[in-house]
């Protein structure tokens, strides 16, 4: 590895380390009141002894007065802010130590969300590419559809999610399909806009060259426009898959779904299981990072094979 590379890795590790340290530090004042209440119930000496007096005091003052409680703030059952190791433990327990078929296994929930995400992403991307091809080749579609595709990106489409779920439920469709539709919807527009840009990216000189070759329109598409659009496609695929995952997670919220990462988030927030929320959040983050990373690898391979990588 080059020295610049090592330096970059060090810098990232330092930043991550600082974040974790800050996280530990923040969980002390965040959890101190709960810890002191527990101590008081256990009959231990707390300063000040009455919960009423503690309520209006600042958290930092309480930490200062009861330094022996600091240790306990990182080890609560239902902390306001769980410490990093608690989240890591929960993640470990619910992924590695539980059977995949178990309802408490995060892998099971992640799979439920992932399958909806992938189905939706495939539908959304496919339709998006088709529409982009249509827009590039048909002047009518370009004029009448494209402005709406752009405008629709400024709209919080996700507000439609609860309605899509309930309406589909009322006509008897449930399970993976409604979530996939929301996912597809969210990944659709970024792909359309990106692909239109990509399919139009060949400049006049290149198009003229093909004309001198007497290339037909479809040859122009397969040999010039489509290859030229690949970098744009991958950029929008990365945006699209992240949006798909958000769509699938939000799609699990309104029905009070029983499975999936969104359902874990919702159940956690109903029952105050903060550690569960945080671990579901991290599972979603890891999933998103894997998906985007996978596309990144694919992008590098494809572009390298095509001789387009810089």
């Amino acid at each position: 590895m080059t020295s610049a590379g090592i330096r970059a890795v060090w810098a990232v590790l330092t930043v991550v380390g600082v974040i974790i340290l800050f996280w530990y530090a923040a969980s002390v004042p965040m959890n101190i009141k709960g810890v002191l209440t527990e101590f008081e119930r256990a009959g231990e000496q707390v300063d000040p002894p009455k919960a009423v007096d503690r309520r209006d005091m600042s958290e930092f003052e309480l930490v200062f007065d009861n330094p022996y409680a600091i240790d306990e703030t990182w080890d609560q059952d239902r902390p306001r802010l769980p410490a990093p190791h608690q989240v890591a433990e929960e993640l470990w327990e619910t992924t590695v130590e539980k059977k995949i078929t178990s309802k408490r296994s995060l892998i099971y929930h992640a799979w439920v969300t992932l399958s909806a995400t992938m189905l939706g992403f495939a539908i959304g991307t496919g339709l998006g590419i088709l529409l982009a091809v249509g827009i590039v080749h048909s002047r009518v579609m370009d004029l009448s559809v494209m402005p709406w595709a752009i405008v629709s990106q400024t709209i919080p489409i996700i507000a439609l999610a609860p309605m899509i779920i309930v309406v589909l439920y009322s006509i008897g469709i449930q399970g993976i399909i409604p979530k996939a539709i929301i996912s597809a919807y969210l990944s659709f527009f970024p792909v359309v806009v990106g692909m239109v840009k990509g399919l139009r990216s060949p400049d006049a000189m290149q198009l003229d060259l093909l004309r001198t070759y007497n290339a037909s329109r479809s040859q122009g598409f397969w040999k010039l426009r489509l290859p030229a659009s690949m970098p744009y496609l991958f950029t929008s695929l990365k945006i699209g898959i992240a949006a798909s995952l958000v769509g699938a997670i939000v799609g699990e919220l309104p029905t009070g779904a029983v499975a999936g990462l969104g359902a874990r988030l919702l159940a956690g927030s109903y029952y105050g299981q903060t550690v569960q929320i945080w671990s579901a959040l991290f599972a979603a983050a890891i999933l998103a990072a894997c998906l985007v990373g996978l596309l990144g690898v694919l992008e590098r391979l494809v572009l390298k094979r095509m001789g387009m990588s810089q």
């Binding site: 060090w10 990462l261 988030l265 927030s269 579901a280 959040l281 979603a284």
Partner: peptide
């Protein structure tokens, strides 16, 4: 420069995450 080297990859990473998921936590706080 050190911050840029360290924070930018982290920022790029976080920008792609489903941050909406922090909503239940922040509502609780």
């Amino acid at each position: 420069d050190f911050l840029r080297l360290g924070l930018l990859p982290v920022g790029n990473f976080v920008a792609a995450l489903p941050i909406v998921g922090t909503a239940p936590i922040l509502v609780m706080w």
